[in-house]
Nucleic acid binder design. Structure first.
Length: 208
DNA sequence: AGCACGATTAACT
DNA sequence: GTTAATCGTGCTC
């Protein structure tokens, strides 16, 4: 009852760009204090320094070798890669692709659907529309932090996973350049590896 | 050993 | 539109 139609390892063991697109419309579930906190995934970004280089990907740093921080990204698919940035925000990613290659999908926005009484306490004094419309915000809303780095997403004892949900029509799937890449050089700066659901109110930014 | 900056957010003008 | 907050990471010296 708590876990319905959990996406299997095979869903994640594909290229990051494929998984990023396929995750739109799926339901992310966080088991927290015995309750389900859940949202429909409406915005993602793919990072993949594998068959082709991606200098925007954390895995491309340190000459493309794993570090203590990025080791999870190089590991097997279907695990959470959680990292800390700007001194205060946690980013939630899902590892995809093949072990030994740096593949991950950043979850950028959700539409909250379960556990809203708990979520609002994690996002105090914020309107519902600002609970989960950004990568740092959704991590805070679902109480995702470093304790979940490396956590598996498809086993019976998972506390974070993704469930099957009604699909998004292909015509509603939009893509464009990734956000916040700073001084990342072309062509990676402009690669259209950000995906979102057209018109969804929780997407972190318009058009792009 | 030291340092510049980041896959961001919120509170400003 | 602009900027402070805040600290781990990876790079340079």
């Amino acid at each position: 009852m708590f876990k319905e139609n959990i996406l299997p390892l095979s869903f994640y063991a594909r290229p990051a760009q494929t998984v990023a697109q396929a995750l739109l419309g799926k339901r992310l579930v966080r088991l927290f204090a015995g309750q389900r906190l859940a949202g429909i995934i409406v915005e993602t970004e793919a990072y993949c320094d594998a068959a082709e280089p991606d200098l925007a990907c954390h895995g491309a740093r340190n000459k493309g070798r794993p570090t203590a921080r990025t080791a999870v990204m190089f590991g097997p698919a279907g695990h959470a890669y959680i990292y800390f940035t700007y001194g205060l925000h946690w980013m939630t990613n899902i590892v995809t692709g093949r072990e030994g290659e740096a593949n991950a999908v950043l979850l950028r926005a959700l539409e909250p659907v379960e556990g809203e009484a708990v979520i609002t306490r994690h996002r105090p004094d914020r309107p519902r529309g600002e609970w989960t419309n950004g990568p740092g915000k959704l991590s805070q809303a679902l109480a995702i932090d470093q304790t979940l780095n490396g956590a598996h997403l498809y086993r019976p004892d998972s506390v974070l996973w993704v469930e099957e949900a009604p699909p998004i029509p292909q015509a509603s799937v939009c893509c464009g350049p990734r956000i916040g890449l700073g001084k990342t050089p072309e062509p990676w700066f402009s690669m259209p590896w950000r995906f979102w659901v057209d018109g969804n109110a929780f997407v972190s930014r318009n058009s792009g």
